[in-house]
Simulated assay, not measured.
Amino acid sequence: MYQENYQCIAFERSDKVLTVTLNRPDVMNAVNRQLHAELARLFTDLQDDEAEVIVLTGAGRAFCAGGDIDWMQEGIDQPASFERTATEAKQIVFGLLDLEKPIICRLNGDAVGLGATIALFCDIIIAHEDARIGDPHVSVGLVAGDGGAIIWPQLIGYARAKEYLMTGKLMTAADAAAMGLVNHAVSAAALDAETAKMAERLANGASKAIRWTKVSVNIGLKQMAHAIMDASISYELMSNLSKDHQEAVNAFREKRRPVFTGE
């Protein structure tokens, strides 16, 4: 069974619904090399699963805190490894778009960087109202190349998207729902019930009609992703080699604010 090949992702089935959990709770489900590789093949594996609906969530108090800082240093020290990362990044985004089954994001906590990208490419997002969402790639000296440049403008428009992507600031799920970035922001007490209600409705619906509606809606997004992804990932690769990125990683480890020089 494919599930046995995953170390950082857990699976739990309930009738027609499969809950898929990012499972590195001790580091807020931050993405390291192993989890990134698993995410790159996850959505292809789910295509053949017998479930009708996928619920994607995170273990512990966060959905996903973005890139693991040690993995970032590895990318700086071994730039060639970023080529594999770039390929996997495209596989993650297109895997989310190509999976015909509806994906509900149960946003149980903060979704940052790649974590936000994964959440926002889901079909329906039900969030804990106090969870924070943002794509602070620029805060660590990187281009928001792994999907943020594609999905944010489609959800909240170019002006707002550029503000959040170029500053890296976070917003609460309540604010995100108000501007249309996520579908619903609910209390912690209501999160499970609201997610289960949506999953049950989709699981008991006309599955072919639901799947093919998703496929139809995603045609435009896939075209845009094909047009943008290679360039944005290439820019991120170049920013990985910058002095500002190394400075940001150093500052994170030293618990201080980075001093950027534009190099």
Rank of each mutant, 00 (worst) to 15 (best):
I233S: 10
D135E: 05
G205L: 10
G66Y: 12
W152H: 04
D15R: 11
A127P: 15
D48C: 07
H128D: 11
A209C: 15
R211V: 13
A159I: 06
M171G: 05
N5T: 03
L155W: 13
Q47K: 12
L107N: 05
L142R: 03
A176L: 02
M179E: 10
A10W: 15
V55F: 12
S232H: 00
V259C: 12
L202V: 02
H184M: 02
V249W: 00
E83I: 04
T172S: 09
G180P: 01
F63K: 14
L107V: 07
L96M: 08
G145M: 05
F260A: 13
V55H: 06
M72K: 07
R61H: 03
A189M: 12
A173N: 13
I228C: 00
A188M: 03
A174I: 13
A203Q: 15
M179H: 04
K243I: 03
L120D: 09
G147Q: 05
A37K: 01
L99K: 02
Q223W: 12
D123Q: 14
I233H: 00
N183I: 00
N108R: 08
I150H: 01
G75M: 09
R24E: 09
K208R: 15
I210Y: 02
L56A: 06
I210C: 13
D123Y: 08
I54W: 02
F94C: 11
Q47T: 14
K16F: 08
A59G: 07
I103E: 13
A185H: 10
A248L: 09
D146E: 08
A131S: 03
A193H: 01
S187G: 07
Q78T: 03
V138F: 07
E83W: 05
V259S: 09
A189W: 11
S207E: 00
A231Q: 08
T167Q: 08
A159L: 04
M198F: 01
T172I: 03
